[in-house]
């Protein structure tokens, strides 16, 4: 059965995806900051049929701890079939505009810490010569926009990093999947008005699950974001700066 490590397992989307893996009897390692929520999520996944669920308390900003997590998962499960990277923060864009500290803090979590983890995860999978690295990015990374470019720029960095990793790991038989959810109804977006393009965390989690076991390299979740983002990428910069596109 599948051995899955979920980094950022208390994210609503990640947990919804984890429930699908649990339903097919997977072995899961859940990693996140809050031990109580990790325990609650683990109990939920056990009820749903997971063969085995381990938890690992970690703040991903503390990058040395990431190595311990990967070592623990590898030792406990004797290897990994899937690493799902799902943590992230949605910074307050307006506050970031007036604060270098806030901007870099968001960058640390969404870009620097993620790239550190991807580097280590890539080494593990390359050594195994099998497995999948699936990373939750965002449609926000496809184009810098007025109202969330601090978040979007970090996601763009991840996207480019994954493109390179994909090419590198291809020869080792390791798959790299970039998953780009659109706006999703989760605690991260609780303060925002929900437009018609919002989907539920369950739906997004289901799409992440299918992307992680599917064959596409870059998956929009839901798929309708692919043509939308293509169109948005084609808008000339001179026009884009006058538009205030928001979802």
């Amino acid at each position: 059965m599948k051995r899955v490590l979920i980094a950022g397992a208390t994210s609503a989307i990640a947990h919804a995806a984890a429930r699908r893996f649990a339903g097919e009897g997977a072995t899961l390692m859940l990693a996140a900051r809050d031990p109580d929520r990790l325990a609650a999520n683990a109990a939920d996944l056990c009820v749903l049929g997971a063969a085995r669920v381990e938890t690992f308390v970690i703040d991903f900003d503390e990058t040395p701890r990431q190595a311990e997590l990967l070592a623990a998962a590898e030792a406990d499960f004797g290897g990994l079939d899937l690493i799902l990277v799902a943590w992230g923060v949605l910074p307050d864009q307006a506050a970031c505009e007036g604060s270098v500290a806030l901007t870099l803090a968001a960058w640390q979590t969404n870009a620097t810490a993620t790239i550190a983890f991807l580097t280590r995860a890539a080494m593990l999978l390359e050594r195994q010569r099998q497995g999948t690295l699936a990373v939750i990015s965002s449609v926000a990374g496809d184009r810098g926009r007025r109202d969330n470019y601090v978040y979007g720029a970090a996601k763009a960095a991840i996207d480019a990093f994954l493109q390179g990793l994909r090419a590198r790991l291809h020869g080792a038989g390791v798959r790299v999947i970039t998953i780009k959810p659109g706006p999703t109804d989760t605690p991260m977006t609780a303060h925002r008005r929900k437009g018609p393009l919002f989907v539920s965390a369950e739906r997004a989690g289901d799409l992440v699950y299918r992307a992680a076991i599917g064959s596409r390299e870059v998956v929009y979740a839901p798929a309708w974001w692919r043509p939308i983002m293509l169109a948005i990428r084609l808008i000339p910069e001179g026009l884009m700066k006058r538009l205030n596109l928001s979802a």
Partner: peptide
């Protein structure tokens, strides 16, 4: 509705 975890069965 987000309170949607199973606890024990």
């Amino acid at each position: 509705r987000p309170l949607s975890r199973f606890i024990a069965f």
